[in-house]
Design a protein around this nucleic acid. Structure first.
Length: 504
RNA sequence: GCCCCUGUCGUCUAGCCCGGCCUAGGACAUCGCCCUUUCAAGGCGGCAACACGGGUUCGAAUCCCGUCGGGGGCGCCA
């Protein structure tokens, strides 16, 4: 009979800043496994480093995870039957278990001053030896230690590790990994300030929270033997481990700020969709069996497979992330596109806080058109300047070149003349007029349309005119903080500037 | 220095475990063409990789050894 126990995984970040994409990927892989297997995803905050942990950071962390869509079943805010989920609130537990080891003789008090240890470590390193604790305090009896403690001495607690032998484990992504105990030494499990050391608290927590699979970064691989030793000391069944490779910057060094945006929060502010970021992150070290690349979170949950996770480090590629983001933006319904665009447009002062129905409708169309080819929502205000900014007095070089030819001047002159008496304008009219110009001047194609575009937009490139003209005509009738100029206004303004007064 | 992990196109990767189907597949980027009213989008096509050296084998990207490169760790940080 095979009884498959529910999978329990956890993400255990320390609240020391914004959540990094590398950590986000770790969280994602844990979450994917839990969701796929109907397991439990636990969020645990590792805030035992008093100097670096801040409450505010914890808030950011939860927000980022929520935004990514990685919801947890148990955690500091939601609770659960294995709580508390904040290490700073579990201190009692750690002391209790440390005491157990002390009494069983598997751990001991160490009175060595930090400076001395530091000196020994440096010396060992300089001599090319592995810096391993000497074991000086190993034989101080518990009784003696207690006396010294009472006398006011400070001591850390160390785990007694056998000095020969091998620790091995079967890593789900790497296979058999083994370490020589000689190189490990007795690790500190409780610091002299009473706070548990990382390697100790994770083990206690993972064990007590009944974590079945520990999926984490490769940087933890060399902590694993120490942790295994602790499971052994307690006689506990260790979880299964899976170590994910690192995420690097373009120069193959660890991803950092100088590589650009690296925190989830930064991508959120740029207007990268959470589903796109998840999609991209999932492809760092994993790939689905079929070649499909644009996947929704639901599809990821369905397809994810730890055994398809590869072992080598991956370089974070912004281009590909943005490409995926474009694909996910395309998938969005128009209302959603508008909703997500609004904050950027408001911040740029292009639209007000209040949005009347007519403006909203117009914006929906405009956003739909201008989002085409945008990498992220933050690029939108820039794209909108095509509509809101008309600056014939400061043409870019390319645009200026386009209208400098004789044929271009002919075309522009014709347009100015043919629109001179008009008070209304629309695309049909434009099409008819350009048809006439074509017939009368014999100028066609690029030679014809390119100058027209420059006159209407003061740019060399942008939306297709059959989309652009209706858009500005409708926009000109609305009340935006920065008004949209109509086609006729544009033509006349441009004409005045280049001294093309229509003849009377 | 020592220990551990890792090495397929510029990048993410498939293939590797279970050698032949691999003249190594896909995607991003790039280049070219098509479409088009420029640009973009889209379509089509091109360039481009098994780190190196030894084995094993009829046959190796795939198995073994070594070299070199990259990363991580060696904390009273997590």
């Amino acid at each position: 009979m095979e009884k498959t126990e529910a999978i329990r995984v956890r993400f255990a970040p320390s609240p020391t800043g914004f959540i990094h994409v590398g950590n986000a990927r770790t969280a994602l892989f844990n979450w994917l496994l839990a969701r796929q297997k109907g397991g439990v995803f636990v969020l645990r905050v590792e805030d035992t480093d008093l100097e670096r942990s801040k409450e505010e950071f914890e808030r950011n962390l939860l927000e980022d995870l929520r935004w990514l869509g990685l919801d947890w079943d148990e955690g500091p805010d939601t609770g659960g039957k294995f709580g508390p989920y904040r290490q700073s609130e579990r201190l009692e537990l750690y002391h209790q278990y440390a005491k157990e080891l002390l009494e069983k003789g598997q751990a001991y008090y160490c009175f060595c001053p930090e400076e001395q240890l530091e000196k020994e470590r440096k010396k060992a390193l300089a001599e090319g030896r592995s810096p391993v604790y000497s074991g000086r305090c190993r034989n101080i009896s518990l009784q003696e230690a207690k006396h010294r403690l009472e006398a006011g001495e400070k001591a850390a607690i160390r785990l007694k590790v056998p000095d020969r032998g091998l620790v091995r484990f079967n890593d789900l992504v790497r296979g058999e990994v083994e370490f020589d105990l000689k190189l490990i030494g007795d690790p500190i499990i409780v610091r002299s300030n009473g706070m548990p050391a990382y390697n100790f608290s994770v083990v206690i927590d993972d064990a007590l929270m009944q974590i079945t699979h520990v999926i984490r970064g490769e940087d933890h691989i060399s902590n694993t033997p120490r942790q295994l030793l602790l499971y052994q000391a307690f006689g506990w069944q260790p979880p299964v481990f899976a170590h994910l490779s690192m995420v690097m910057g373009q120069d193959n060094t660890r991803l950092s700020k100088r590589h650009g945006a690296t925190s989830v929060d930064q991508f959120r502010r740029e207007g990268v969709l959470p589903q796109a970021l998840c999609n991209y992150l999932s492809f760092l070290g994993w790939s689905p069996p079929e070649g499909k690349e644009v996947l929704t979170p639901g599809e990821l949950v369905q397809l994810f497979d730890l055994s398809r996770v590869n072992r080598s480090a991956a370089i974070f590629d912004y281009e590909k992330l943005y490409w995926l983001n474009r694909q996910h933006i395309k998938l969005l319904p128009p209302e959603k596109k508008l909703e997500l665009s609004l904050p950027y447009l408001q911040e740029a002062g292009l639209v007000g806080k209040e949005l009347p129905a007519a403006e909203k409708e117009w914006l929906t169309t405009a956003v739909e058109l201008l989002l085409e080819g945008s990498n992220k929502f933050s690029e939108l205000p820039q794209k909108f300047s095509l509509i809101f900014d008309f600056k014939p007095e400061s043409l870019e070089e390319e645009a200026a070149a386009i209208i400098s030819s004789d044929s271009a001047r002919k075309v522009l002159k014709a347009l100015v003349e043919k629109t001179a008496g008009l008070i209304e304008f629309n695309y049909d009219l434009f099409a008819r007029i350009t048809g006439e110009i074509k017939k009368e001047t014999g100028i066609k194609g690029k030679e014809l349309y390119h100058p027209l575009r420059v006159m209407l937009t003061a740019r060399a490139s942008g939306l297709e005119l059959d989309k652009f003209i209706p858009l500005i005509e409708a926009g000109a009738k609305l009340n935006f903080p920065r008004p949209v100029k109509s086609s006729l206004q544009r033509i006349r303004e441009f004409a005045r500037l280049i001294n093309f007064e229509p003849e009377r």
